[in-house]
Design a protein around this nucleic acid. Structure first.
Length: 586
RNA sequence: GCGGCUGUGAUCUAGCCUGGUAGGAUCGGAGCUUCCCAAGCUUCUUGCCCGGGUUCGAGUCCCGGCAGCCGCACCA
């Protein structure tokens, strides 16, 4: 007996969901193509995502380049964090980060060495000079090598650029324009759907670890002082399965989780709730979904706190929890970094309800005296004095030309005056829900895949159904003429054409037995099949079949687009069609 | 990146040890059957991962590459 061919991977490839990229050239690890059905399904997922994370939240969606200049990633910290110098033992082939080997006691040095600032050769020399050996087996190290997780490229003639490892930076860089787009109203959110690129060492889990992947991210800018998040009340009763950073499992509502400090910010809990609702709506099995908090040493360099939505799927014959969404509190990190590097003002303004009158002290230098005394150094002294902020010390000293000088009291006066302060500036904190679209799509396929027993007389042993949610399914409906006989084909084509005029994706199939055609559609998750039969020719009715119950109801042919649309959008349930008043039979 | 195993039509596989250019099943196309849940019959399309070597001759043996799986490492 042959092995059952109806295994999910086979369906994914044969029916056109996902294909290995560059296949005729032997393929390349970490790259996948979306086939026609996969593309349709991905578009459907993205459509629902937009509804959740753009429309309903009132967020804005933007698009920024995939390639960015080096400076961006130097500021964002990705350059340091993604470029590790690695050392491999020539004997046991154990690999270490040079930074660890050099700074963690293997070397007889007192001060920390900033490994990131050393050239490759210098690190090699250092290793050789100090005779550092492999901590595991005392073997000799091979020469160090650079390990880049970002793809580098060249912009123009000789400017280094990188392919973005996340879409977030494009949003941060536009903070000023976005802030004014939202007319200075906080909080606000900005979404971007795009590609991320990471040059993984050995991506070996199919579509789970890609070198070029699809992501949908939202950056939500909030006031870091604000502990509440608007709309939290709406989600406070959401039930979570939470695995905290100490490995403790909690079953809590959003409200409880925040109150007990398991989730440390309302905004995090809010987007976790939104994420959970979204994932379940598009077909992730609730039982195979949980949130796991990152451990301290696991967190990205920019994150202060992070919860991953994880789905349980089978990879390489093993069940594992896979991160498919990360919901991070990035704090002020990114804006602060870009502000420091560029000098651009990436702050928001918080207007006080009432302007505050406060007494401020100001240091007012006597410029004439400064000039006469310090001559050419006077501007330096003036600048230094201007940089001081209250409270001012009794004696003011500064470094000048290698020595320390005291600025005599008569060189300045301290003025007190009342100022009206109408608000304050602050760097917003960022809450970021970040979705791995490819992983989500694959998890949905696994969670939707059902294998049943084939009927008597059928050659294959199993019958497979992809129980996709209608709004996610690549085809919403398929149209079949029962026979290719006078009238039926034409009517089927007319019904099909009427469906094509809607936004819905549909297919027409007149090849093979009727059972085979139902099976084809079940295999790719088409929720509804329309069949034109003998009776159709007499009274212009057709049957509509529900994928999961295989039940059939007869409806008028001209109502097909409307009814399919209602079924797909959740406007009516299939069962309701049995009631003639809903527009069903006769 | 290291070590082990593997690589046959769209899919699953037989053949490889004991060299003589490939067989099955599924899928797909066309037709018959006038078929409402992968029935049956006829017929057709598509294949030895790539390159080199050994040999009269290589899917089969050898070497290199690429890819996949397992283990180690890596996965912000």
């Amino acid at each position: 007996m042959p092995e059952p061919v109806f295994d999910l991977e086979a369906v994914i490839k044969r029916r056109g969901f996902l294909w290995r990229s560059f296949d005729i050239y032997g393929g390349a690890a970490g790259f996948y193509d979306y086939g026609p059905l996969g593309t349709a399904m991905k578009n459907n997922i993205v459509r629902v995502w937009r509804r959740y994370f753009v429309q309903r939240e009132g967020f804005a969606e933007i698009e920024t380049p995939n390639i960015m200049p080096e400076e961006v990633f130097r500021a964002s910290g990705h350059l340091d964090k993604f470029n590790d110098v690695m050392l491999e033992c020539s004997k046991c082939h154990e690999v270490f980060r040079a930074e660890h080997v050099i700074n963690e006691g293997y070397l007889e040095i007192t001060e920390e060495i900033n490994v990131g600032s050393l050239a490759l050769e210098d690190i090699g020399d250092l290793i050789t000079a100090k005779g550092v050996q492999c901590p595991m087996c005392k073997g000799e190290f091979r020469p160090p090598y650079e390990f880049n997780l970002m793809f580098s490229t060249t912009i123009g003639r000789n400017k280094t650029g990188y392919l973005q490892p996340e879409t977030a930076q494009g949003i941060f860089l536009n903070f000023q324009s976005l802030y004014s787009y939202f007319r200075g109203k906080m909080p606000f959110g900005v979404a971007q759907i795009g590609k991320g690129f990471r040059n993984e060492v050995s991506p070996r889990q199919g579509v789970i670890r890609l070198r070029e992947f699809n992501m949908a991210e939202a950056e939500v800018f909030i006031n870091p002082e604000e502990r509440h998040y608007k709309g939290f009340d709406k989600v406070k009763d959401t039930n979570f399965t939470l695995l905290d950073q100490h490995g403790a499992l909690h079953y809590l509502t959003a409200d409880e989780a925040v109150a007990e400090g398991v989730i440390r910010h309302q905004a995090l809990a809010y987007f976790m709730a939104l994420t959970q609702g979204f994932l379940i709506e598009i077909g992730i099995d609730e039982e195979r979904l949980r949130f796991r908090q990152h451990e301290k040493d696991e967190m990205a360099h920019y994150a202060r706190d992070c919860w991953d939505a994880e789905v349980l799927i089978e990879i390489n014959k093993k069940e594992s929890w896979i991160e498919c969404v990360g919901i991070a509190n990035r704090s002020c990190y990114d804006l602060e970094q870009h502000m420091k590097t560029t000098g651009a003002d990436l702050r928001a303004f918080e207007r006080f309800e009432e302007p505050i009158e406060q007494e401020v002290e100001r240091l007012k230098p006597d410029l004439r005296l400064l000039g006469r005394t310090y001559r050419n150094d006077a501007p330096k002294v003036r600048e230094y004095l201007g940089s001081l902020s209250p409270p001012f010390p009794g004696r003011i000293t500064m470094e000048l030309n290698g020595g320390t000088v005291e600025i005599p009291k008569e060189f300045y006066t301290i003025e007190k005056r009342v100022e009206k302060v109408s608000g304050r500036r602050y760097i917003p904190a960022v809450i970021e829900p970040s979705f791995g679209i490819d992983r989500i799509l694959y998890a949905i396929l696994q969670h939707s895949f059902h294998v049943g027993k084939a009927r008597e007389g059928v050659d294959s042993e199993s019958y497979t159904i992809l129980k996709l949610k209608p709004e996610i399914a690549p085809f919403k409906a398929a149209v079949f003429p029962l026979f290719n006989r006078a009238g039926m084909s034409e009517l089927a084509k007319r019904v099909y054409d009427s469906l094509v005029e809607t936004e819905m994706q549909v297919t027409l199939d007149d090849s093979g037995s009727i059972g085979k055609r139902y099976a084809r559609q079940d295999e790719v998750g088409t929720p509804y099949c329309i069949t034109v039969d003998h009776q159709s020719l007499e009274d212009k009715t057709v049957t509509i079949r529900d994928r999961d119950s295989t039940e059939q109801v007869r409806i008028r042919a001209e109502k097909v687009p409307e009814i399919i649309h209602l079924l797909v959008s959740g406007g009516i349930e299939f069962e309701e069609l049995r009631n003639p008043e809903s527009g069903g039979s006769d």
